[in-house]
Amino acid sequence: MKKVLSLSLILVLCVVILTGCNYDGKITQENAPEPKPTSTSTPTSNSDPTIEEDLAYPMQFTDDRGNVTTFEKEPERVISLSPNITEVIYALGQGEKLVGRTAFCDYPQDVQSAVVVGDFIEWNFETILSLEPDVVFASSLNTEENEKKLKDLGINIVYLTQTESFDSAYEIIGMTGRVLNAEEESKQIIEDMKQRVAAVVDAVKGADRPSVYYVVGYGEYGDYTATGETFVASLLDMAGGDNIAADITGWVYSLEKLMEEDPYFILCSEEAKTAFQQTNGYKELTAVKEGRIYAIDDNIIVRQGPRLAMGLEEIAKILHPECFD
């Protein structure tokens, strides 16, 4: 317990230091919202502007938690408390509306201009309130207690569930688009993603399915992977891989089992790659010895957002380079 606690303390301190760097510590009344006379954000896409105007405000929106929110006008000031929703907001071309984010929201680069209002669990309610958001997006990564507190403070909160399926990303993109009056853009993104997914599935069809293991955690921190019930596993599956952890549930795995299954491919994060190959036991794996351990950006395969299709493509290219020449 002590070790875990001290570890977490270090983590907290790291977060503190990291967030302290890009935050100037001041949210003054001066840079609080200046009222915008009209909706100045013309979407950059070539969608028909009349469709935008068809969406009549006030609009009622029911989120995944059953919260019914009435938007009197198009939300102009948005806070996202989940990295995947932050990415969706930017993909929809609504990035300039984002005034607040979590310390984990790091994509795209432009998010730096939004104020950090906390992480997944600890929110700074003062900062959130003083940003005067029209809507706050929350996801399954956040706690219901915090959501309730925000609601009690009279903030519009839209909760979007992340379920363990690929389609959950489409749901989240669609719903975010509706709230932000960018439904056309969201449909386009979903259509584009579906096409890319179909292309990948088509490309790997008929190819043999190499066994694969996705490293979430390893070594003294415990062996964790994306087992069959996770949506990351469905990515591996769609990319034409045979996830060796497909038949178990949860996230826990073990080194012995990993050695027994001895997967053909190993996927892990960039930071873990070198250390993983040098750790006792893991360095005996055939995939490590023969150089079939590949680094992949976690963020494009665990965030249920617009980059998920790209994540799928990258996995497929690792597992089946022959199909993507």
């Binding site: 875990v4 606690l5 669990i121 700074n124 415990g222 949860g250």
Partner: peptide, 24 residues
Amino acid sequence: QLLMIFRRDRMDYIMMWTMGSFST
């Protein structure tokens, strides 16, 4: 600890709770 090991995805929440907070 056992529950945290088996539900790693909930580990942070448990940890933060046990450290106490008046934020809500």
